[in-house]
Simulated scan of single mutants.
Amino acid sequence: MERPPLILCVSVSEGNTALVARAMAEVLRADVREPEDVDPHTLSERPLVGFGSGIFRGSHHARLRKYVERLPHVRGTRAFVYTTSGMGRSQSLPWQRSLESVLRDRGFEVVGSFSCRGFDTWLPLRIVGGLNKGHPDAEDLARAGEFAERIAEELPAR
C-alpha cells in the first residue's frame, strides 16, 4: 500500500509556515514532519512531498536547505515548494525557484509552488512590532488549501 503524501516543514519563528503546512495537509491527507524526522531515502515511497519554510535573510531555512542538498536521487516522486515571508510571493519566488531546481536535479517532478505573507519579526521589524501581523490569515490558508486541491487532482487515487 502506498504511503500518504508528506509535507516537510521548518517553522521556527512565529509558526506561520506550520499553519500553511497544516492547511495543505488537511486537503492532501498528508503527514507533516520536520525534515530531521524523515529518512531521505524513504521519500520515493511517497506520491508527493512538499518542502517548505519561511524565508530567512533571503533564503529557505538552513535546516531545509541542508536536508534537500543531501537527498538521494528519486524517480516518479512529485514535489512542491511552499514558503511564508514578510514580503509574500515577490520575496519568495527566487528562492522557490532555487529549491525547485535542486529538487529537479534530484529527480523530483516539481508540480507547483505556493507562497503567502507571514508575520515577520526580523530584528529591524521587531522594533516597530513586526510586519504582516495576523498573517497567514484565513484567506491565505484558504488559498493554501486551494493550491493543495489543484495538486491533489493530479494524484493517483488511493
Rank of each mutant, 00 (worst) to 15 (best):
P5R: 01
M1I: 02
G54P: 06
P47Y: 05
N132W: 02
R97K: 07
S92G: 13
A62V: 05
E69G: 06
R143L: 14
F114V: 11
D39Q: 11
W95D: 15
L99T: 02
H73C: 06
R75Q: 15
H135Y: 06
L93N: 01
E139P: 01
Q91I: 00
F114M: 00
T17Y: 05
L155D: 10
A152P: 00
P124H: 08
L125D: 10
Q96F: 06
C116A: 09
S85C: 12
G50A: 09
G86L: 02
N132R: 01
A30W: 06
A18H: 12
S85F: 06
R89P: 00
R78L: 13
L99D: 05
L19D: 11
L43D: 14
R29G: 11
H73K: 15
F108N: 10
V12C: 06
R22E: 15
N132K: 00
G76K: 10
P40R: 09
H61L: 08
G145E: 08
L125I: 08
E100C: 11
T17M: 06
R3K: 14
E45S: 10
R150G: 09
E34P: 00
E154R: 04
I7Y: 05
R89F: 13
A23W: 03
I55P: 04
P35C: 04
R89C: 04
S98V: 04
L125T: 07
R126H: 11
G15S: 08
I127D: 05
E139K: 09
Q96W: 04
G15L: 02
F114G: 11
H60L: 14
E154Q: 09
F56L: 14
G112K: 07
G112N: 13
P136H: 00
G50M: 09
E146F: 04
V20L: 02
V38E: 13
S90F: 04
K66I: 06
V128H: 03
D37A: 14
A30D: 08
D137A: 12
R143D: 15
V68M: 07
R126N: 14
R150T: 02
F51N: 14
L64H: 13
E154C: 00
V38H: 10
